[in-house]
């Protein structure tokens, strides 16, 4: 499956002493992690200068496996921690890993303001439509009618289109990809990492254990195959009869602009102030 990565040895970017990892078999988050590490490798980002800031959840746990400066913070707040870190240390490459609950529910306010500020950060939101870590409760991205432990009658709340939200809030770079296409996801993350402002990358991931099981979605392999047929890069969309997520979500780079980057603007204003007044 990954034969097009001849020079990439994932072990160089992992803390091998932390293996075995804690993810359930087939969890999509592992594929997202692979894509991220592959992107970092191809961009030759110095591990010593890389800071990974994560929130709380199965997604948030990934930072501990990455051989970099890693910060596992509090639920919903990784973007706020990362904002302080990136402003204090513009020499670092700061990547945030968050989940759909972490980023859109408890941390939603931080997300929209991070997009608005457009500080150079790369935020990966691993969207599995569920609160995986706490055992499968409904999240802001759970599709309508889905069963979760807190929607035993089927979800009746509409869900978020996180990329539309990030675009509206002003993010400089917004994109979405499925874990099924690891090389494509890697390319998207690479583009995000190279973007000079705030980059929001939504990864459509699968929680096999508590979401897939509850909704009879079959084995993890079947869930991933379903992404291929039903989770539509926009060009394939016509062939999809029954999308398994309620919103018809496009993938790829969805927004890219050159709005001024916040950290640079701040430093420019400070330099002027120091020169002018005393």
């Amino acid at each position: 499956m990954f034969t097009d990565a001849p020079n990439f040895d994932i072990r160089n970017y992992l803390r091998m002493e932390m293996m075995p990892h804690f993810l359930c078999p087939g969890c999509g988050h592992g594929m997202a992690l692979r894509a991220l590490l592959w992107a970092l490798h191809e961009l030759d980002i110095d591990k010593d200068k890389l800071a990974v800031v994560s929130g709380i959840g199965c997604a948030g746990r990934l930072s501990a496996y990455i051989d970099a400066n890693t910060f596992h913070t509090t639920h919903g707040r990784p973007l706020a921690y990362a904002t302080g870190l990136a402003l204090a240390r513009p020499d670092l490459h700061v990547v945030v890993i968050s989940g759909d609950g972490d980023c859109l529910a408890i941390g939603g306010n931080h997300l929209i303001h991070a997009c608005r500020r457009n500080l150079k950060l790369t935020c990966l939101m691993l969207n599995n439509e569920i609160y995986g870590m706490t055992g499968g409760q409904v999240s802001p991205t759970t599709s309508e009618t889905r069963l979760t432990t807190t929607t035993p009658l089927g979800n009746t709340e509409p869900n978020f289109d996180a990329c539309a939200l990030a675009t509206a809030a002003g993010a400089g770079f917004v994109g979405r990809e499925v874990t099924r296409h690891v090389p494509k996801l890697k390319e998207l993350i690479k583009a995000g990492l190279q973007h000079p402002g705030f980059a929001f990358v939504e990864v459509l991931s699968d929680c096999t254990e508590v979401y897939g099981r509850k909704n009879d979605m079959g084995s993890s392999a079947e869930m991933v195959m379903r992404q291929k047929s039903e989770m539509r890069p926009s060009v394939y969309r016509d062939s999809v009869d029954t999308p398994f997520r309620s919103t018809d979500l496009p993938t790829g780079i969805l927004t890219r602009n050159d709005r001024p980057e916040y950290g640079a603007s701040l430093r420019r204003a400070a330099a002027l102030a120091s020169k002018g007044a005393h």
Binding site: T83, G84, A88
Partner: peptide, 25 residues
């Protein structure tokens, strides 16, 4: 003017988090 950074965050939770983030740096 003293080689530092001031930022007004979106709420006090974010402000505390940003302060810890800066100190971790």
């Amino acid at each position: 003017r003293n080689n530092g950074v001031f930022v007004q965050m979106e709420d006090e939770i974010a402000a505390m988090a940003a302060v810890i983030g800066a100190s971790m740096g």
